[in-house]
Computed example of a mutant assay.
Amino acid sequence: MNIIKKIKLLFTENFDDIAYSNKHLFNFKKLWIVIFIISSIVAIVPLVFFALIDLKVTGTALEREVEMKTLHLTSNSSRFVAFFLDERKLALDFVVSENDYSDLKTQNKLDKLLQDLKNTYGGFTDLGVIDSNGVQINYSGPYKLAGKNYKEQVWFKKACEENKYITDLFLGYRNVPHLAIIVKHQINNGGFFLLRATIEDRFINLLSQLEISEKGDAFIINNLGILQTPSKYFGKVFNKINIDIPEPNEETKVITKSFKNNKELIIGYIYLKDTPFILMIVKDSKEFSKPWKQSSLDLFKYLLISIFVILLWTFGMTTFFVRRLRATDFRRIKNMEMAEQANKMASIGRLAANIAHE
């Protein structure tokens, strides 16, 4: 008799042919079901509980790891950009401190200085000397900007208030995207002049040197959210990004933003000190959730296999013990019947003895 027939016999065979005083105590079908359910719950619930905890802990650890990597990448990238700007700002400061105002007004001298800056640092497009009235009295570069008056320009007014100033990206008279690094220097007569250098493509393409994941993005915006460098997600320079500008903070921060197309981006950002720039590193969360989803799928498979094994084991053990209990109970009842029969025969014998005696 195979196992299926045995189980079927367990559920169909009864003891109606035996005199029971309390039949429900011998409902082995119900007993089997109760034992099977309780044993399965006791074994499976902790397994599922700890599997869910492991899944949650793994997901949280992965999120923190991604945030930390984004944080470090943003911080390191900000130092790279800050060094690029500070190096050129200090170079201009050195130029004005080592050269007289009269020398800087000389065309040959300014041309030589620009060439030296290009050879040493790279990235410089032109160099100009602007007096306190906003007039560019000397200029070296590819554009015809000598004699231009910048008195009404916002950057000129800010540069006059500060010793060193870096503009955000703008078009200006040349109608080409560029930024200006401006150094203010006092002269002996109590006046001052500005030495202005501009950078074009070198700054715009600065972040292209960073090694970011395939779906990652790195770009710079100004305080108004206008792109200063191209972005994979938000387009060309001068586009406005559709992300709320984060609150100013001296530390590197990481935030998560969700969009209508179900895209979730992890964004690291930092305000670059003494500049109008905010550096942002963007990563697609799906790129990092793939390993977690795969491990979750594997865990789910192993969980199903474990539950199946537990149910199979519980099924077998419950069947074994219930059948043993039934057999034991059956023997007990048979013994009780035999005892009752013996008592009956003894009573008949005593009755016959009494009759014979009479």
Score class of each variant (00 low, 15 high):
M1A: 15
N2D: 10
N2L: 07
I3Y: 05
I7P: 00
D17I: 14
I18N: 02
Y20I: 13
N22P: 01
K23H: 07
F26Q: 04
N27A: 09
F28H: 05
F28C: 10
K29N: 13
L31T: 10
L31N: 10
I35K: 11
I35M: 11
I37V: 15
P46A: 14
L47N: 08
F50D: 03
I53H: 04
V57H: 03
V57N: 08
T60Y: 04
A61K: 13
L62Q: 07
R64V: 09
L73Q: 13
T74Y: 02
S77F: 04
V81P: 00
E87R: 09
E87Y: 06
R88Q: 02
L90V: 14
V95P: 00
V96A: 05
E98Y: 08
S102F: 08
D103N: 07
T106K: 13
Q107R: 08
N108Q: 11
K109D: 02
L110I: 09
D111C: 07
K118I: 10
F124L: 06
F124P: 02
N133E: 10
V135H: 01
V135Y: 01
V135L: 05
N138P: 02
Y139E: 00
Y143T: 11
Y143N: 06
L145F: 05
A146C: 04
G147V: 06
K151Q: 12
E152A: 15
Q153W: 10
V154D: 10
F156R: 05
K158Y: 04
K158R: 12
A159M: 03
K164Q: 13
K164T: 15
Y165K: 06
I166M: 04
T167S: 10
L169T: 13
F170E: 01
Y173P: 01
R174K: 14
N175L: 09
V176T: 10
I181Y: 00
I181W: 01
I182S: 01
Q186D: 11
N188H: 09
G191W: 06
F192A: 07
F193N: 03
L194A: 10
T198H: 03
N205R: 09
L207V: 06
Q209Y: 12
E211K: 14
E211I: 14
A218P: 00
N223C: 06
L227R: 02
P230I: 12
P230M: 09
F234S: 03
F238C: 10
N239D: 09
N239Q: 08
K240Y: 04
E247V: 13
E250P: 00
I255K: 05
K257Y: 02
S258D: 09
S258G: 09
N262T: 11
E264H: 09
I266S: 06
K273F: 03
D274L: 07
T275A: 04
P276E: 01
P276G: 11
M280G: 01
I281Q: 02
D284E: 07
S285A: 15
S289P: 00
S289F: 06
P291V: 08
W292I: 15
Q294G: 07
Q294M: 11
Q294H: 11
S296G: 14
L299V: 10
K301Q: 07
K301F: 12
Y302L: 13
I305A: 12
I305L: 14
V309R: 07
W313N: 11
F315C: 13
T318M: 05
F321K: 05
R326F: 01
F330A: 12
N335E: 12
M338W: 11
E340P: 00
M345N: 14
A346L: 15
R350M: 14
N354Q: 12
N354F: 11
H357F: 13
E358T: 14
